[in-house]
Amino acid sequence: MLDFSYTRARSADEARASVAAQQGTALLAGGTTLLDLAKCGVERPDSVIDISHLDGLSGIAVDGSGASIGALAKMSAVADHADIRDAFPAIALSLSLAASQQLRNMATIGGNLLQRTRCPYFRDPATFPDCNKRNPGSGCAAIGGVTRNHAVLGTSSHCIATYHGDLAVALAAFDAVVQTDRRDIAIDAFFLTPDDRPDRETVLEKAEMITGITIPASIAARQSTYLKVRDRQSYEFAAASAAIGLDLEDDGVTIRDLRVALGGIATKPWRARSIEAGLIGRAITPEIVTSASRLAVEGAVSQGGNHYKIELAPRVVARAILTVAASLNPDLNPALGETA
């Protein structure tokens, strides 16, 4: 049964000290993950430290060097921020296409990064005791089960759960940095693939707290999009998604810079550097974009039910790249319009 004490933290230091001092203490920000998983029986905190009222951690600032976003900024505030929409459209879109407005008004940026997988086996301990994420060494009930929304990249024999967040995918494309109370962590290094320790999802240490994120400015980030393909039009997790940033040379066709990251198909936000390397310096055509986008699923492993993602993900990447290209150079439009 859900049973915990509640304390409203007076400072971030006090909150961290409480977590360090006592096993079973959880930080509560927006609550959309913690309370949901507590009701599922996945999280069983003995005590909850509410940090949602703390001042000074919810700022959003954008200047020529990039964006700085406090850990307690709400998803909706970042999604609607005019400067974020200008300088980082993919970031704004990844947020506005996620969840619902009610959840976006509650959930914080720090909590969003730390959201847990939607793997139905993970979320149902009463029916499926076996889960290496919840209970290391117990096995994985998903492998051999219904796997339509499980990962095809970054999986191991211990876990195939997808990382379902959208924001982190856009952050991965644009080299964001996660700031904690003790260090700066590159977004690529922040998330872990499951390997033989699926219970470890990030490099955060005990009582380490995310304080904010920074995203360096770039032309590719300014010329970016987030394309999310899913089973219904809204309020659904991605079947496959792509964050794309693109810059073209002055000739309007040669690719100067490209950023690609994928969501909905991997155990962590998936930067696809092989696609970037394969396309930078080349003249953009639908054929080479479509062909290079196949590199997105290099090494993919199908579980059966999720096999469609291996076909879908490259198409999502190609469509996103060609959409941004057409917005940069309208002359490309007829050639790029019908493809992927």
């Binding site: 509640y6 409203r8 509560l28 609550g31 959309t32 309370l35 949901d36 909850v48 509410d50 949602s52 909706s76 407005q101 009610q102 959840l103 008004n105 509650m106």
Partner: peptide, 19 residues
């Protein structure tokens, strides 16, 4: 369960009363 907190729509089922 949608209601408003400080004028913003939120889900009251995922909000602790204490919050």
């Amino acid at each position: 369960c949608t209601c408003h907190i400080d004028g913003q729509r939120v889900l009251s089922c995922l909000t602790l009363a204490a919050q």
